[in-house]
Design a binder for these strands. Structure first.
Lengths: 214, 214
DNA sequence: AAATGTGAAGTTGTTCACAGCT
DNA sequence: AGCTGTGAACAACTTCACATTT
């Protein structure tokens, strides 16, 4: 039968599916490290903590990659997912706000392994003394626009205090940033062509607290 | 037969609602700081980045707190949500894995303000030299069980390398931990009476990357 | 025989529309 | 008049059941 999957409908992949694709990708990477070249939806779903049918549905949103009776080729599927997610090439990211948390993220090995490189950091006080050596240069906020534009950077990690987060976010958007990973505990107001992902550790703890109380 | 009588039928609050309650709580705190004592669902929803009807539905899951024609009392609503979330009292938490990220979280001011206190840290190598002074004691893994039991601690922040994450998680559960905030990039397998919240920075970036690629 | 791909059914979460208080 | 609280409609997501392919 002919396959029209590639031009089907609005081709809108659910947000949750995209999130799970990232998880599948990491599970596939581990399988590959262990020299496993073929995997069934059942085994991969198990590793990712989802049901096999969900995994198959997720993949079906953007193609058909399996072989019936056999399963999926680990390498080929990794490649397809990686292409879809846009992480086949190393992506430059900046970090804004070099305090405690920002500094830790700057020295966090593991982004690079996952396809991201923090190429520069920015801070209101770039010369402030910091008790850790890092390899990235720290610039003042006035240089943000130039660096972003020159290097065509699209994503930023925001680790500034809540009080200035909105202001800094505006600055980022103005400079051309379209994706913000926001660690400040406030809801940023941005135009709808800018995407914000929030990471709020206190909320995560609070959430745990609720579900573990009796 | 299992007995679910204590879960009053129809009283299960959705996970997403619980998550949003935490957001509302933070918005209410800011209103209070600004001396605002009454707020409408429209204004609060706006601050939290949701629709007014959603806010009202969320609150309706556990009570009716508003005054028709007027709105909600900021202080009273804060109290009710805080009680529901179980964050009215300071909660003790431990952190396991004092590397880069773990160290940063240990010195992160802001948990306490939000109702959590990291009371102790654990590491396979507690005496390892670290380039930052922290106030919490660092113990070896063999002391984990005793500390958790003595202080009745229920929640742990897990910041160990992926390779040992599952093993350490087993150790935590054995010691009596029922809530884990997991920063390791693997899906932990735990019994279903233990709750795991995952924070995976690479996945968040990947997600942004997808939605900002054109 | 084994495992994928998918329409249909089921479940959960969101928004609407408006009744009901203050 | 203004704003909450809520059943009903709607939308999104998940799971089932099974036809289809190797």
């Amino acid at each position: 039968m002919l396959n029209f999957a590639h031009l089907k409908k609005g081709s809108v992949i659910p947000r949750k599916t995209i999130y799970r694709l990232s998880i599948y990708l990491r599970c596939l990477a581990r399988l590959r490290e262990n020299g496993i070249s073929t995997v069934s939806s059942e085994a991969l779903a198990q590793a990712a903590g989802v049901k096999p049918t969900q995994l198959r549905k997720d993949l079906a949103y953007f193609g058909t990659f399996g072989t019936r009776g056999l399963g999926y080729d680990v390498g080929a599927l990794s490649k397809k997912i990686s292409d879809k997610l846009g992480t086949s090439r190393l992506q430059p990211v900046i970090l804004v706000g070099v305090g405690n948390l920002g500094l830790a993220l700057l020295s966090y090995r593991g982004f690079e392994k996952e396809g991201f490189e923090i190429v520069a950091a920015f801070d209101a006080d770039p010369r402030r003394k910091r008790d850790k050596q890092i390899k990235q240069p720290i610039f003042g906020m006035d240089e943000l626009s130039i660096v972003v534009k020159e290097q065509g950077i699209k994503m930023a990690i925001l680790t500034v205090p809540a009080a200035v987060a909105q202001e800094v976010a505006n600055h980022l958007v103005e400079a051309g940033i379209v994706g913000i990973l926001n660690f400040s505990p406030i809801v940023l107001a941005v135009s709808e062509d800018v995407m914000v992902n929030n990471v709020n550790l206190a909320i995560e703890l609070e959430n745990l607290s609720y579900f573990t109380q009796e």
